[in-house]
Simulated scan of single mutants.
Amino acid sequence: MTNLSQLRKSYEAGELDEVRAANEPLRQFDAWMQEALRAGVPEPNAMTLATVSADGRPSTRVVLIKGFDERGIVWYTNYASRKGRELAGHPHAALQFHWVEMERVVRIEGRVERTDAAESDAYYASRPLDSRLGAWASPQSEVISSRAVLVANAARAAAEHGLHPPRPPHWGGFRLVPDRWEFWQGRKSRLHDRLSYRLVDGQWLRERLAP
């Protein structure tokens, strides 16, 4: 077996302190996202989404953030997928961004709700045609016999809907409404910077955590 125990990295790309950090987590996230975009970080919009099943079994997958504002963090998916079913039964989740090149992690927790139909319709209409047809073609998280099933489903959707497929009823947006954030900046000697934001009585409480 490959021995990984001696892999080491010294984190020295930046720092995060209370003087420079924003008082509100959304402003801090926006600042870090802009820096990641300017730095050319590969797929800075990729985030890990963690959900929990009815029997308490956690699962994770990578999804793409498609928007964020004071209301929360938005992504889109198949509501009938495993994550969609788990969120329907347990509408709380955790998100994580890992920007390796900047030695940064952002963690977000909160309750999850569906975006309204108009918001989902607008985003769906902005997608490339192949992606819109793909939402019809994939019975996400279900067992299929081969890739040929997806190809046939896509061809059927194209024949039925042409150039203007409507949004499938099983596809749309989720919004995580945060009540906890954490910003992690790697530092030398494993003395990392961690700033936590907790929502307390409608106000954000910022605290430093031990690494």
Rank of each mutant, 00 (worst) to 15 (best):
E70D: 14
L150S: 02
A93P: 04
R57T: 14
R147W: 01
R114Q: 08
L150H: 02
E86H: 13
V74G: 07
R187C: 13
R82G: 14
S126P: 12
E18F: 07
A154G: 04
R180P: 00
G72P: 11
Y124P: 05
V52Q: 09
T60N: 14
G84K: 11
W99C: 07
F29A: 09
G84W: 11
K66P: 13
L64D: 02
R175G: 02
R38C: 04
V62R: 07
A22P: 08
F174M: 01
R114H: 14
A31K: 11
Y76G: 05
L87P: 07
A135C: 03
R167E: 08
D116L: 04
A50N: 05
Q96T: 03
Q28T: 08
R71Y: 06
V41N: 08
E43A: 15
P91C: 01
L209N: 12
V143Y: 00
D17H: 11
A125F: 07
Y76R: 03
E160Y: 00
M33W: 15
A155E: 15
P169G: 06
K66E: 07
I73Q: 06
L205D: 13
E101C: 01
A22D: 09
L163E: 15
Q185S: 06
E15A: 13
A50M: 12
L49R: 11
S145Q: 03
E142C: 00
I65F: 10
G56N: 12
Q140H: 10
V151L: 14
M1S: 14
E113V: 15
A50G: 13
D17V: 01
L87Q: 07
Q96M: 08
Q6L: 10
L205R: 15
T51Q: 07
W171H: 08
P169H: 07
Y123E: 09
W184P: 01
M1R: 13
R20A: 15
V41R: 03
P178G: 05
V105W: 01
Y76I: 11
D30E: 15
S81R: 11
V105G: 03
G202I: 06
S81T: 08
Q6E: 12
I108Q: 07
I144H: 10
K9E: 04
